[in-house]
Design a protein around this nucleic acid. Sequence first.
DNA 1: TTCCATCTTTAACCTAGATTAATTTAGTAT
DNA 2: ATACTAAATTAATCTAGGTTAAAGATGGAA
Lengths: 195, 195
Amino acid sequence: MTSKPHPLRQLIEQFIKLTDAEWEMFPPHLTEKKIKKNEFMLREGQVGRELGYVIEGEMRHFYTRNGEEKTTYFYFENSLVGPYVSCINGQPSLISFEAVSDTRLLVFPYAALQSLYSQSHSWEKFGRLLAEYIALGLEDRMVGLLTLSPEERYVQLLESNKKKIIERIPQHLIANYLGITPVSLSRIRQRLLKK
Amino acid sequence: MTSKPHPLRQLIEQFIKLTDAEWEMFPPHLTEKKIKKNEFMLREGQVGRELGYVIEGEMRHFYTRNGEEKTTYFYFENSLVGPYVSCINGQPSLISFEAVSDTRLLVFPYAALQSLYSQSHSWEKFGRLLAEYIALGLEDRMVGLLTLSPEERYVQLLESNKKKIIERIPQHLIANYLGITPVSLSRIRQRLLKK
DNA sequence: TTCCATCTTTAACCTAGATTAATTTAGTAT
DNA sequence: ATACTAAATTAATCTAGGTTAAAGATGGAA
């Protein structure tokens, strides 16, 4: 009777199968960390050194532009979160990572991941597939911004498999995510009700 | 006296150094292909099988949304072009790839690249770095769409290192790229002149 | 319960960009 | 040159979303 695999391992194995030996390279680098509501994993301007796996909670990341926050992503349990871009390019992050509610993470240094990449072709392949996955997601998001009106983006969000966002994120942050103001989103909802 | 390295090898080696043996795995898969102005490398709905390297010319890619084209990228000499997303996920491409003017390419099957990935850790690493590079570019573009007004996006384009787009791409396609109509771009230019 | 802060809605007004259509300019082919 | 097509500008009108401000709703904390 084998014990249940680590949930993070399960997540990684959605990309690539690992031998036990390969997996075992990873856990020594993991540390549990709690972030309270409205606290930050990383603030804009800091260089990203570590990434995290969400055990439970909600997080978001946002840009600041002349004082205004622009949320571009939400994270829920069982997903990877963190200043991926800053880790890759070594530049100060343009993005802040904040807990929307109390959140528990497993964090690991990006350097540890890089070391796995170089030690093992399998891990390197995981790195490629992860980057490709992220690119597909970004592409999708970009196309939405370019080809849909705010109202259409909201409708698409309602109809998508991203129900968690609708259910668990406050409306003004959803508005932010859609690239509009809370006032505007409220009006859009009003308009849609009348149909 | 060594001969000058292949320009495509130079491009790849901006990501990762290859031994001669590793590089030599690649050229057998390369074929030169000419695409005339307004002809397609791939049309929406087809599954992507091959990628290309632009020797000379200009290309663009665009989405179609209720009959309207939305250009999201331009390609010039010495860059990689093609239905990367479709190659990765095996789904019919949502994107069409068209030559803006007569273009010469070196094309190669995506399967050949995948085979290199699995044969060599170095090539796999190249795959990761390429995907990461693409993700960084998409992130950048997405942030621009989310945080800047059309006018600000145009100004940013003027001031960016993407001069080639301004110099070599017709204005109505630039408008498309900025997510606005040609009429609107013309007005924006007018407005900017008066400052 | 009451109080306070946050979130959401509503209303009035403003503006950048969309739309439609007409005009001018530039490019290309014959 | 001429004629034809595509590209760019200009003008008039319309509208979705922004802005500002005020009023309701919601939810905790004491």
